[in-house]
């Protein structure tokens, strides 16, 4: 790995530590899906996105929508690490009066581009942001992350059709393909496969990558920027990635670690 990717990997580890610490502190929240998106969010916020934390509403900024809004901790960690607000605020997660709501709230927290939490809806909003960029001939990109369970919402496919119809080449979406939702394996609850084929059939440019490989994530985005269509990057991920006892366990979708478990997890997530 070049030093750039070593540095990104360190950021991703730090992001995971923040996720565990804040959910532990809150006593509730969604660690599994936050950890599975952590490398993608790290690449976006520390390498790929053109943003100015000191001027958060800069009109030409790239946009990011966390459509799987329950993974709010990964977004909050990224925003704090990039200086949108002090890191000390992370411990207010889910507390009364905190800007760090259980699901991202753009009215309460600067840097959140769209309020999400009801699955399927953030993706449509991302399509709208990309459409506005196209109408205004702006050069910004709109990024989004959606969940594989979230794909079961019909609205996702309505948005997919719309984005391809309008050739929104400025829209780059990651599918966090971790294979799990709340009630178990996506395959058993309601199968969404075959995945690359579905997106291709809907007129999207599709790539498949390892969603924990920072180099692959960055490479896929450069490739996506060459396309004439919206891009779906199918990122194969592990739910709970980085914390051995959480990995691939549906039970860690929406439960907080105890204080002992936080200690164990942080040990596994120590930097080099």
């Amino acid at each position: 790995m070049s030093c750039r990717y070593t540095e990104l990997a360190d950021q991703a580890l730090a992001m995971r530590r923040h996720i565990i610490t804040m959910i532990g502190e809150a006593g509730s929240g969604h660690p599994g899906g936050s950890l599975s998106s952590a490398d993608i969010v790290t690449a976006l916020y520390f390498e790929l996105m053109n943003i100015r934390p000191k001027n958060p509403n800069w009109p030409e900024r790239d946009r990011f929508v966390l459509s799987k809004g329950h993974a709010a901790p990964v977004l909050y960690a990224a925003l704090a690490m990039r200086g949108f607000f002090p890191l000390t605020k992370l411990k207010t997660l889910r507390k009364l009066g905190s800007p760090l709501q259980g699901h991202p709230d753009m009215q309460k927290l600067t840097g959140v581009e769209m309020s999400t939490g009801s699955l399927g809806q953030g993706f449509s909003a991302a399509v709208g942001m990309a459409l506005a960029g196209q109408v205004d001939q702006q050069s910004y990109y709109t990024y989004a992350i959606i969940g594989d369970g979230e794909l079961q919402e019909g609205q996702v496919w309505e948005a997919a059709m719309f984005a391809a119809h309008h050739k929104l080449r400025n829209l780059i979406v990651f599918l966090d393909f971790n294979g799990l939702q709340i009630d178990g394996q996506v395959e058993c609850v309601m199968n969404v496969q075959p995945l690359p084929d579905k997106w291709q059939a809907f007129g999207w440019a599709v790539q498949q990558i390892d969603g924990h490989d920072l180099r692959a994530i960055c490479g896929a985005v450069s490739q996506a920027k060459q396309e004439e269509q919206p891009s779906m990057i199918v990122a194969h991920t592990v739910k709970g990635k980085g914390v051995s006892f959480m990995e691939n366990q549906a039970g860690w979708h929406g439960s907080a670690p105890s204080s002992e478990q936080v200690v164990h997890a942080l040990k596994e997530l120590e930097g080099r």
């Binding site: 369970g149 079961q152 019909g154 939702q181 709340i182 009630d183 609850v189 309601m190």
Partner: peptide, 28 residues
């Protein structure tokens, strides 16, 4: 996809042949 929270999971365990998951697709 909320059977553990809505508590329909108990019915699912007892009468699996009469329980159907719709996935995250409330309208359908």
């Amino acid at each position: 996809d909320l059977s553990k929270s809505t508590k329909t999971a108990k019915f699912k365990e007892t009468y699996p042949e009469r329980f159907f998951s719709a996935g995250i697709a409330e309208a359908n």
